[in-house]
Design a protein around this nucleic acid. Structure first.
Lengths: 67, 67
DNA sequence: ACTTTATGTCATGAATACTTGACATAAAGA
DNA sequence: TCTTTATGTCAAGTATTCATGACATAAAGT
């Protein structure tokens, strides 16, 4: 799964630690999600979309093999 | 976290087993998600939203305590 | 009455998400 | 040069998700 977390963070000028704190996750956990190592839970995806004022679909995109 | 999976299933007249098959999960797994026992992964949430032609935000709503 | 279907639930185990503490590196500032 | 900041990564442990097989129940069909 791909994501545009880095872009949205850049818009807000937030570090990974900033975002992690806002959505209630550890910095390392967020890093693993942002770099595509972990698939986040829907709760985290919804929280992220909310703080970025966007949608889960815009923030996360299924790969062709996952669709 | 709340969800409207049952409603969307009803629109399509699908059983839990039908939906589970479409999104690649076990019937019991889907039941646990639909009844709110498990928080699904974002991959599953995106697949469900897709087959129902809706969005993750419409299908899943954070509780006030989770927001 | 019997069978089938849909749902809910439980137990066990495997896979994955997430935490914490730690360390490395590169970039920027003092 | 020294320090700080941001990011990436690793290891070990805990928590959660998901699979599978099983059983119960209620509703509907025969």
């Amino acid at each position: 799964m791909k994501n545009t977390i880095k872009v949205e963070r850049a818009k807000k000028n937030w570090t990974q630690a900033d975002l992690a704190k806002h959505i209630g996750i550890s910095r390392q956990g967020l890093n693993s999600i942002e770099t595509g190592k972990f698939v986040p839970s829907t709760v985290l995806a919804l929280r992220m979309a909310k703080v970025f004022n966007t949608t889960v679909e815009i923030l996360f995109q299924l790969d062709d093999t996952e669709a």
